[in-house]
């Protein structure tokens, strides 16, 4: 780069730098407003993003909790037949004679008559 180019660049740079201070007051005011608006908008966007994230987290947690409760309820309802099965197995494994079951009607009549006195 020769000397003339350097002088040209220096001259242009100085003029440009000086012109920055000569921006009209209306544009300066609008720039200030634009700056404030940008800061406010960006802050609001961050708050909305944070709130939306937390709301989704809450909704997800609630859904999971509901599913968990439903599973517990369904599980507890389904577990009763197993107890019945266990009782049947216990009953079946007892060493009562066949005659005992044949005379079951007699024992039931006997019990009923003792109850009524």
């Amino acid at each position: 780069m020769d000397t003339n180019d350097k002088k040209l660049i220096t001259n242009i740079t100085k003029k440009l730098t000086d012109s920055i201070d000569d921006i009209d007051s209306v544009s300066v005011a609008r720039l200030q407003a634009a700056r404030k608006s940008a800061l406010e908008y960006a802050t609001m966007s961050k708050k909305n993003h944070f709130f939306q994230n937390n709301r989704m987290l809450f909704a997800t947690s609630s859904a999971l909790a509901t599913v968990f409760v439903v599973v517990i309820i369904v599980f507890s309802m389904n577990s009763q037949p197993e107890l019945n099965i266990m009782e049947d197995l216990t009953l079946l494994s007892e060493k009562e004679t066949f005659e005992f079951y044949e005379e079951m009607d007699f024992y039931q009549w006997l019990e009923a008559s003792e109850t009524h006195g």
């Binding site: 544009s27 720039l31 634009a34 700056r35 608006s37 940008a38 961050k46």
Partner: peptide
């Protein structure tokens, strides 16, 4: 264009801050 220039500056500022 002054209006376009102001919009551009505001847009750039918003993106930077955001």
């Amino acid at each position: 264009n002054t209006e376009e220039a102001l919009d551009i500056v505001q847009d750039a500022m918003t993106r930077l801050v955001k």
